[in-house]
Design a protein around this nucleic acid. Sequence first.
DNA 1: GGAGCCTGTGAG
DNA 2: CATCGCTCACAGGCTCC
Length: 813
Amino acid sequence: MEDSVLSQLSDDSLLEYIADLSQSQSQLDAADYTREQYFREKSARQQQQDRALQEENKQNGVPQIFGGCAVYINGYTKPGRLQLHETLVRHGGKFIHYLSSKRKATHIVATNMPLKKRKEFANYKVVTPEWIVESVKAGKLLPWQSFAHAWDDKQPKIAVTNCNDPNFLNNFFQNSRLHHLSNWKSNLRQNVLQLNDSFRVPKKKDSLTVFHIDFDCFFASVAALDFPNLDIDSDPIVVCHGTHNSDISSCNYAARKYGIKNGMWVSDAKGFLPQGVTLNCLPYNFEKIEAKSAEFYSILRKNDFIKFDEILPISIDESICVKISQSSETPNLRDICQNLRNEIYKSTNCTVSIGCSDTLIMSRLNLKRAKPKSSFILFHKDVDDTFLSNVKLSDIPGVGSSTISKINALNNQEPILENVLQLKKVINANKSFIGSMTATVGNKLTKKILLSLDGKDDDESLKMIYEPINFFERKSLSIDINWGIRFNSIHEVDAFIDICTKYLVEKLNELKKKTSQINLKLLKRAPNAPIEPEKYLGCGKCDSMNRNSKLGIPSNEFGFLTTEIKHNYRCVSCPPNELRGISIQFIKLVDVPSTKDDISKRFINFETFQNLPNDVKPGFVNELKKRKIQIKEPKVNKYQESFLNEIPTQLRNEIKKDLIINEKIKNSEIDRIYAKQVQRQNSLMNSKNHLLGNSNESIFESIKFQNETSFKKICSKIIAWVDFTVKDNGPHPKDLELFENYLDKLSDSNRVPLILRISKLISNELNLKSLKYSNENGFQIWEQQLIKTIIPKLMKNKHTFQTVRKLDLEFDL
DNA sequence: GGAGCCTGTGAG
DNA sequence: CATCGCTCACAGGCTCC
Ligand SMILES: Nc1ccn([C@H]2C[C@H](O)[C@@H](COP(=O)(O)OP(=O)(O)OP(=O)(O)O)O2)c(=O)n1
Ligand SMILES: [Mg+2]
Ligand SMILES: [Mg+2]
């Protein structure tokens, strides 16, 4: 192929071509080989090559995790077909070259699939390529469900409310207003960081005019556009999904007249209506909401009336716009507000209100005062008692229901404070009130409330204006699902954790960040709460439980993170059927150097490249260089690494920290099980015969004395032993003692890779059996044995182990 | 007296 | 039919040193 042709290939095709050429080079005389022959013989040759490659890898100890899997790869995939093919075969899988009869394939791998194909494959396990990639990384076969395709079909719009459905999360988020609100907000904030050069950040000495601009009953207004028979000014309108225990996202001012508020349940709202008045419940129109918001922000950026120095996004329907005052001019603020409001209405058919002032707090309070369909301007020095008497406690930002009830409690509930003027009077009349407020609602908030009585800002609020880049920078990343969570087994929970982690890791990569700390927060049904709460699929009354883990090294690896989170789940005692909510937080985000990250994803194996005919190499080198694809030596013994990586960090820390610290770690659940197990073992000690013979003829003893017993044989015995005892009461203590002796010997003789191999064996075996036996005593004992005894031996020799790994010493199989 | 963890609170 | 109860950040109390 001409070099000029090369440049027209996609990255995947190029790599595929190189790999194919490389393979053919190793087997055939390239000179006689035409392209036609290449394709004709490809299939048969590959079948044969597959078998050879697999056997070779098996001999080299590559774990055959895809044993029994017959995989067909459909269409173009990322990573490419050839790469997946090779990975699969190396790890024990069968690659189906042509799909003559679908029954032959156990799994179908695809990145994209047209609707027709999707229907055709409806009854097959259709997964994303990550299933292969991540399984290899994890060193074990991951459940295909975690990688099932979540096709975002609009067409047969079947509601997915079952949390085990691979589409559940997608579907939930598509319909969750709060998710959209959060998501839109984070996008707006990111835009600020990217387009910050359009800002002129004020200095502290500048005097400012602040415009707080916000749509009136935004979702309701947008929804009403689709219902021209309704009058947004006079008909009570709410936006919600359901008819009873459904949240009201937004209600118009005609509905607010009766006491209805955003966030209320529909059933409560209906209770407020007088006889004969009906509530108009409208569906969400998220697309239109987004479109209206885009027009809104675009007018703020460019209009004929004012050029803002900062446009600070507060939410999808709200922005704080800052203008640095020029001593030379005195703009007509009333006209500016009016013109902006008109312009936005012309463009969106929805009204905004504007609060304008020289401080943030006053512009916010003015906004509230202006609503709906109006603007209000008052500078902080002009605040008087009349104004304060129209401000409610809840209008002060940072003051919510909890704070209000605390303040009212301080005032012995009499009178219940209706407005801020009343609060001011109480404070003036009672010298100790500020002190007790500080004690109950906190120092900062008390100061903030006092400042707001004078229309002045606290420093924290001003950071948005003076340090916008810092203010808008993301400090954490998390996902919360507290609706629709109904699981029956830990495996279902695991699969869902996979889906959540995948969601987060995707975002993490977009942000080019890693996380160094993760937190798992669960909602568990409160003991007195009914199994099913009032709200359909809601979480009801719950107790929340947390588990935090600091990672030794910051990570963005799916396999590592999801393992850590699953481990965390096992550390808090919440049976799957009691689980009502899950949130996963990545806290302490750190930057990942972007160039290194990009390149590491794009490489071609050194061996593959070496195999190419010498005369074509230079052409490829140029092409690869141009595309920044590296030629890289594959990692040796990759599975050792991935196994180590997946030992939960908490465990690693535990091992590292030593015995004293061990006592402080509050993994009471594990310790409880462990204690129980020790007790049980003691009682077993003198009873039943154990499986591996008495100490004189144990398999472990025999290898110690006679080197002829092969490690392979021992492995198979161990598997049989685990297999036999996992479904029952667990291994006999005597056997365990022998086994531990053996491990210690291996450890002492620096044969750490063998311990690793055994750990892996057992871990794999437990994985296999987990579906059936995870609730059995034997299973749990084995799990504990692995965690508390075997892996620590491995870690004890971490140094040796790493050295061994570096030198790439062979296992003595 | 500060670093870091945990929990409560509020916002849209 | 129900229904789509998210996600971020700060403050303050606590423990540990
Ligand atoms: N508990 C809440 C609060 C808000 N929102 C959504 C719907 C709102 O329309 C939008 C904007 O929030 P606002 O606080 O600005 O409320 P509105 O725009 O509805 O009313 P207004 O701004 O006129 O008070 O966010 C929501 O879904 N649930
Ligand atoms: Mg609004
Ligand atoms: Mg708003």
